[in-house]
């Protein structure tokens, strides 16, 4: 009863809440880091150093008037942000924050579930999110959002291919689709896959920037061109859902990168006995630190780079990243077969 029902439910509640809090603080982190990069201070008014800003933002967004344009497709308009948000959250079901630990005399796994096709589940569920953007642009019945959602669908579909191909290379290395299994494979190989698959890792990082609509690939929202893109017509909490989904996706991508390429919850050099004094640090801390590095990188890139143009983005995706990913996959396969 407790093992089968209460603990999973507790884990779901914790992960869901932690994610939502993480997402709101991710917004603060982004505003702060970009502000520092631009020699500003960022939010400073709400709480010391703006630490309570996410709460103020949440309250503001919830109290805002929720406007539906008169000529919008009302049902689709309402559903679109939900379609965006839900996949971004349920992906967390298979992300391993840590291994099995004993807590209050009970063996508890630090992940909600470990299914044997975990990676496939993440890829397929995450790609549903794009429907939210497409439908939002369509349902708004407005020209700028429509253009943005066309951009979004083209962009997300083309980068999905490259990213998934790099994931396949990793699966070839680990021999399993289970997220926990992939971390275990890195443990037994004594190697983080980022060092075994540097090309795949590079493509994954670029592709995931594009998939999460982040700079320099933030074309669907390109404020300077499309005045906010697909969420132009949205306000209040519905707008907030798109916003939360974007940041939740960033955290997902960072977690996947950590798990696949940087050994998940493993400490650096897990096979070096000399570093075993680091073992007092709980395993999930390593996971969070590694993910944080990725999130910081996302923000850093946004503060630095100009935006790609639509055609250049497609060219980069189809003519460079996908061929490279395929070559990498074939090469990995050949080496695997030769070694075994």
């Amino acid at each position: 009863m407790i093992d089968g029902f209460v603990i999973p439910l507790l884990k779901i509640v914790i992960v869901l809440n932690a994610t939502l809090v993480g997402v709101t603080y991710m917004v603060l982190l982004e505003r702060k880091v970009i502000a520092w990069a631009q020699s500003r201070l960022g939010p400073m008014r709400v709480g010391p150093h703006g630490i309570l800003q996410p709460i103020a933002d949440a309250v503001k967004l919830m109290l805002k008037e929720d406007i539906t344009p008169a000529r919008a497709d009302k049902w689709v308009f309402t559903v679109a942000p939900i379609i965006s948000m839900v996949p971004a959250l349920i992906v967390y079901a298979v992300i391993p924050f840590g291994p099995e630990v004993s807590l209050f005399g009970r063996q508890v796994t630090l992940y909600i579930t470990d299914i044997n096709v975990g990676l496939l589940y993440i890829v397929s569920v995450a790609s549903v999110g794009v429907y939210g953007i497409i439908l939002a642009g369509y349902a708004s019945n407005s020209k700028f959002p429509l253009l943005a959602s066309l951009r979004a669908s083209a962009q997300l579909i083309s980068y999905e291919v490259a990213v998934t191909l790099t994931l396949v290379s990793v699966v070839l290395m680990s021999g399993t689709l289970s997220m926990v299994g992939i971390v275990r494979a890195q443990e037994s190989a004594h190697l983080w896959f980022a060092f075994a698959q540097p090309l795949a890792f590079g493509i994954f990082v670029i592709g995931s920037l594009a998939e999460t609509n982040r700079a320099p690939f933030d074309l669907p929202e390109a404020e300077q061109e499309l005045t906010g893109g697909f969420h132009t017509e949205y306000s209040g909490m519905r707008f907030a859902l798109f916003f939360l989904a974007e940041y939740a996706n960033m955290i997902v991508v960072s977690s996947v990168a950590t798990t696949l390429f940087f050994g998940g919850w493993l400490r650096p050099f897990p096979n070096w006995a000399a570093l075993s004094f680091l073992d007092f640090i709980p395993s999930w801390t390593w996971f969070l630190i590694k993910s944080f590095v990725f999130l910081y990188f996302f923000v850093w890139v946004r503060a630095t780079l100009p935006r790609y143009r639509y055609d250049q983005l497609m060219r980069l995706g189809w003519k460079l990243l996908i061929p490279l990913a395929i070559a990498n996959l074939v090469l990995t396969g050949i080496i695997r077969v030769a070694l075994l």
Partner: peptide, 16 residues
């Protein structure tokens, strides 16, 4: 100009 092309940091540097 940089802001229009998406490089927002230059904007604040130039204004400084």
């Amino acid at each position: 100009h940089a802001m229009d092309i998406g490089a927002m940091t230059v904007f604040l540097y130039a204004f400084r």
